[in-house]
Design a protein around this nucleic acid. Structure first.
Lengths: 141, 141
DNA sequence: GTGTTTGCAAAGTGTTTGCAATTTA
DNA sequence: TAAATTGCAAACACTTTGCAAACAC
């Protein structure tokens, strides 16, 4: 089966309204591309390409802005694993990642597949905002 | 006490010879700045500034090249936590990091302070090269 | 209408590279 | 002296920004 998500009719428009972003043509189109086909990871360039491929006219600048707005309202998560390139993850639930160093690609690890049985105290005056586990993998020699 | 490390008289020259890098004036100076004062994290800019401050003339390009050479021979580790900026860690032993999002700073977590009691199988045909845990922290509200 | 959003092109940041001059072995 | 390294400046990749035109409410 294709992409039945938690919310069966996950509607881009409703989602934008929910988070208080004006549903402009560009934002709607990008939201569709991002959220209508299951969890995945994208870079700005990739999303921009996907938009072009879908005959959606959006400037790269808008793609960047939109990705950050989506991140700011919490419907997207930014993952940094490579110098000079940001990945955005449509899965905002707690989970971790494989980073395949050969084909330069992120793969989700379900939260339950990782168990952190001991964590350090955060530094004085600080509190933990997120724990990220990245497992770097490469082709088996 | 100051910085008595594993190898008491950790000598920059010896270290470079060990890894097969010609001990040039620049590399020696950078190695001293990096390894003579205990484990820490630096960016290229920071190291360049430290060099200037110590009256060592090195170009930024050489700092970048040197950091990567040091990384390639395994005496430095690259840590990516922020888009658009690489940190280099003089601690190459297994360990993890706090990333303080307010003052944009890495803090070492000793390996024993984190216990990963369950790890997923790597994807088909791949093998794990490293497991990185980054605990993002912010000021307590 | 009014405030928001877009797209463009320009600017910005961190990093890499080509190459002649310099240094090291 | 042959090979490696440096520094400069130019090039790069990715990202952000300023601002006038277009759009949403």
């Amino acid at each position: 089966m294709a992409s039945v998500q938690e919310r069966p009719f996950a509607d881009a428009l409703a989602r934008l309204k929910e988070v208080g972003l004006r549903p402009t043509r560009q934002r709607l189109a990008l939201a569709k591309l991002l959220f209508d086909k299951g969890d995945h990871h994208t870079t700005a360039e990739q999303l921009h390409a996907a938009a072009r491929a879908a005959d959606v006219k959006v400037s790269l600048a808008t793609v960047y802005n939109t990705l950050h707005q989506f991140k700011d309202v919490g419907i997207l998560r930014e993952v940094v694993v490579e110098p000079g390139r940001s990945y955005f993850d449509t899965n905002t639930r707690p989970h971790h990642h494989f980073f395949h160093e050969d084909d330069v690609r992120l793969i989700d690890i379900p939260d339950e597949a990782v168990e952190l049985s001991r964590l350090p105290e955060p530094p004085e005056g600080a509190e933990i905002s997120r724990v990220e586990v990245v497992i770097r993998v490469g082709a088996r020699r």
